[in-house]
């Protein structure tokens, strides 16, 4: 249970997070890979420059290995970097990351033999937006977040608050389907705590489904009025590996580059459809959105859709064909006349 091991002891010390046994093991293994020349690069997480943040670490320098951390703030889906990094790569992977890696292999974007997967068990990551809401304070004003399996202690401005862990984990973590990577070369042998709340994991989707089509459209219309087309959702997504995205096509021009809700919505709708069968519900698109558009209410619905219609779970089987390249002779009956 690695959650217990994360006990930052204050605003300054949490930047240098406590080295847990897992971190030690990970550093050892990653160091060995670099030293022996098995890999050219290691991709992992290092402490971020701000409180309760981490940052991707992409390095060929053995001295940097000691910066590798494991804690409940290792948000990024590092699989994103794999197609662009040359040579052989050792990558630290949570369950969801490993699914993205497998999906990239299925889509032949990377070769299995070029990747060394260092699997880590994950009990869920902390959604700072939820913590901020609970604490009534912004991230940098929170002194301490101690995550235990059943509860989380948040200290802010001298006040201590204890809440069930399910209230601070990301929605996608509450619905996680793979806490321990299935595909790996090295795995840290620790169990992960089963912290789940499937209902709140897709609460907004259920609420949207109760609405009429008109209301749902109005909802998304409003949401995409906020969109600033920074493309962070696309850029952070491991499933978006196209050399050139349809939004940037100019002949023909599918979507206007001008930010207006119509085209913002079309962009996101098509992006979601294009990554159907590649999306692993890692939730990164929603986390990085600077204007808080609930993007996971799109991606997760698509994730469930392909699950229901084609009994397909992305990135679970490295030998399975990618969803959109395969077919059954009879399927999806009744939708096409």
């Amino acid at each position: 249970m690695w959650l217990k091991m994360f006990e930052p002891s204050g605003p300054t010390t949490c930047l240098v997070m406590k080295v847990s046994d897992m971190e030690k093991e990970l550093r050892q293994e990653a160091g060995k890979l670099l030293e022996e020349g098995t890999v050219d690069y290691i991709i992992g997480f290092a402490p971020g420059s701000l409180k309760f943040t981490t940052t991707p670490l992409i390095t060929e320098d053995i001295d940097e290995i000691n910066n590798l951390v494991i804690n409940p703030f290792i948000n990024n889906n590092l699989a994103k970097y794999l197609p662009e990094i040359p040579g052989r790569v050792g990558i630290i992977a949570k369950g969801c990351d490993s699914r993205s890696i497998v999906s990239l292999i299925q889509d032949k974007q990377i070769a299995r033999q070029d990747i060394v997967i260092l699997g880590i068990p994950c009990s869920g990551l902390v959604d700072l937006k939820k913590v901020e809401k609970l604490a009534g304070k912004e991230r940098d004003k929170i002194d301490d977040i101690v995550v235990l399996a059943d509860k989380v202690c948040i200290t802010a401005g001298g006040e201590k608050k204890e809440v069930p862990t399910t209230e601070v984990l990301f929605d996608h973590c509450l619905g996680c389907e793979l806490q321990i990577p299935k595909e790996y070369d090295f795995l840290i042998q620790e169990p992960a705590a089963e912290i789940r709340d499937y209902e709140s994991s897709s609460k907004q989707i259920q609420e949207l489904k109760k609405m009429s089509p008109d209301q749902r459209w109005a909802f998304w219309k409003e949401q995409f009025g906020h969109c600033i087309r920074c493309y962070a959702c696309r850029q952070v997504c491991p499933a978006c590996f196209c050399e050139r995205c349809f939004v940037e096509e100019s002949q023909p021009r599918w979507v206007s580059p001008v930010s207006q809700w119509q085209d913002n919505l079309i962009f996101q709708a098509i992006r979601t459809i294009h990554v159907a069968g590649r999306c692993t519900d890692c939730g990164e698109c929603e986390r990085v959105c600077p204007v808080n558009i609930p993007l996971r209410s799109l991606s997760k619905e698509m994730y469930d859709l392909v699950g229901e219609m084609f009994d397909y779970k992305t990135g679970m089987d490295v030998n399975a064909p990618a969803l959109m390249t395969a077919y059954e002779l009879v399927e999806a009956e009744g939708l096409i006349r």
């Binding site: 991707p56 962070a232 990085v288």
Partner: peptide, 25 residues
Amino acid sequence: SAKCISCGICTFLCPTCFCFDINDE
């Protein structure tokens, strides 16, 4: 630059970045 993902957050939300594009619709 290795970890940069080439999104537009830093530039769009920078108070001094001003690059623009012109399009006819």
